[in-house]
Amino acid sequence: MNLPATDIRTAPAEKAPKRQRHIAEEFRGKFYVYFCVLLMIVIIFSIVYFIASRGLAPFIANGVSVKEMLFGLKWNPEGDPAAFGALPFLFGSFATSLLAAVIAAPLGFCASVFMTEIMPKFGKTLLQPAIELLAGIPSVVYGFVGLSVIVPFLRDTFPGQGIGILAGALVLSVMILPTITTIATDALRSLPSGLKEGSYALGATRWQTISRIILPTTLPSLLTGVVLGIARAFGEALAVQMVIGNAPHIPHSLFESATTLTSIITLEMGNTTSGSLHNNALWSLALILLLMTFVFVFVVRVLERRVKR
């Protein structure tokens, strides 16, 4: 009966230094975390601010109209009168990325269904590493392969030079295949097994279960993968630039030279001086890319919320 009382009296004196050490450690940990978070926020805001201040300059200081930039067909920032129509680039960027997604999405879904439902063992040991390898290949290699294989093939098979939207989209589709497949595979793997069993137990075949339960249930996640793939394709510069031809106009067919926002920025930025109107106009294009990224992130967020429900 006496023992606990003594314990309580002596305890604070003994534990005090230990407690202090905890507080110091706690403080240090907190400090590191807050510092890193703050640094990241500062970096992000600086980038956004920098792009926005340069990218908005042509509209504010030089009186270029937003309408011209978004819908104008002629791009000649050095000319007299200067023209800032970026519609052909916007068109090229959207056309290549969306077409790439249209090509890659079915392939990615099929690959992930195959890896999770049909041959899990083969999928895990061979197909998945192979697809992940695709993600690690540098874009210049993709562009090179596209230029040496896809472009000649298209030139021989279809009318035109082979370069153009389709060549760009084909190269991009291979590049975004890992994104789409990996996300789809994760989604299919995380599907509760009870759902599949429930379907089989009612006498459903494997294909009925895949098409009526598995794909509809995981659809928001699958779309998330597609949107992230599009975002990656939208921002890819080098590989597309090597096979698209870089002619600044809206093409009449898939096999005619075209260009994208990213191609124009990489091609022209070396020829401009910092602070010039031309240079700032390129920043406007970068700003458009940034805003598109926001849109993609937003769409992904909305889809993710639907997954959780």
Binding site: P192, L195, E197, A201, L202, T205, P216
Partner: peptide, 21 residues
């Protein structure tokens, strides 16, 4: 045919597993 068999022999599981429909 397993599909025909499972139509005749239904099953209810331990955890309720309704489809997300």
């Amino acid at each position: 045919e397993v599909e025909v068999l499972r139509k005749r022999v239904g099953m209810v599981f331990q955890q309720p597993n309704p489809f997300p429909k």
